[in-house]
Design a protein around this nucleic acid. Structure first.
Lengths: 177, 177
DNA sequence: TATTGTTATACTCTATAACTATA
DNA sequence: TATAGTTATAGAGTATAACAATA
């Protein structure tokens, strides 16, 4: 085990893509988190959860569905949803069809926070991320990163080791769009 | 509060680039962190610090230089370097020219850990990130993301929060929550 | 007076394991 | 037995502010 064959090193473009990706996403994430904190007292994860709920027709999703979207341990999701509920931004109710389940619904207050936070969020994205890019760059970026994402999603995620989520079955509303 | 005019919403390509960027970097980061933890008991930040030191001619850098590279608060850097030192992977010594300064140097053990961790690191990058991409995609990705990074670096971000001196103290804003 | 770096501290987030209640 | 979700708990990481020593 000490003698692992060294893989060939990455070439400059590969290294460049990797380092730039990490650096860009770190800086962007950092700035966005500050904006969300300032504007709505939300962490990024909480924002993601609210945004996800706000995107559905009835503003509701089951815990499991939320966990599928945001890569989390179940307890982590319970924690974050608990915070949102305490802040009055979501409500929990027993699931109709499955007595084990819990349905999370965004409240009016939750939608208000979302609306209050969105403009600044978009501003940050424009100023920090999109501003220096040409139309073709953005298209290219979206295309290539989507390829990578789909590839990553198609691979056995480590989280599947313990308690498998609904990874095996095909969910109609996967997470697309 | 300020009434911000709603900016025009992002178009699909812009949204796609943003979401894919966040998702890809999250998943990649997550996987890499596990690998680093498993192979060398290193957090990603610790790996970054070691790699940075290992990249210099003499394996040394001042705390300030390290802080410039890795987006951190000074105390955070002190904490991480403290951990690395405790593990014997770096050594601290007083800076030669500036008696206030501290020079951090990677040790032999530190280089060993780096060498032990690199192959798996590169494997993860290849399998998860680079594998589905054509040569041209990687080049394109590197180019576009580098543009973004340079743009981000040229802006205000973290330097703005640097170290601020306490000028005339504002009245203590009692609102604690 | 400004800067380098540390310390003290408080807090957020995340993961694991044990637990319940349904299916 | 397997799944949905919660709880208890423990640990890592980060930021802020106060501080000491030096420039």
């Amino acid at each position: 085990m000490t003698e692992e064959a060294s893989p060939p090193p990455l070439d400059p473009a590969e290294l460049g893509a990797y380092f730039a990706l990490i650096e860009v996403s770190s800086l962007l994430r950092h700035t966005v988190e500050q904006q969300l904190r300032d504007a709505g007292d939300l962490s990024y994860v909480q924002f993601q959860l609210l945004a996800r709920l706000g995107d559905t027709a009835d503003g509701s999703q089951r815990m499991t569905e939320l966990a599928d979207g945001v890569v989390y341990s179940r307890s982590g999701l319970t924690y974050q949803v608990g915070l949102l509920e305490k802040a009055g931004l979501v409500a929990r109710s027993p699931s109709a069809e499955d007595d084990r389940g819990v349905t999370v619904t965004i409240t009016e207050a939750g939608r208000d926070v979302l609306a209050r936070v969105f403009p600044g969020h978009i501003d940050v994205l424009r100023q920090l991320f999109l501003e220096p890019l040409a139309r073709a760059d953005i298209d290219s970026l979206a295309r290539v990163l989507t390829v990578v994402r789909d590839h990553m999603r198609s691979i056995p995620p480590r989280s599947a080791k313990r308690r498998r989520k609904s990874a095996a079955r095909q969910s109609p509303n996967g997470g697309g769009a």
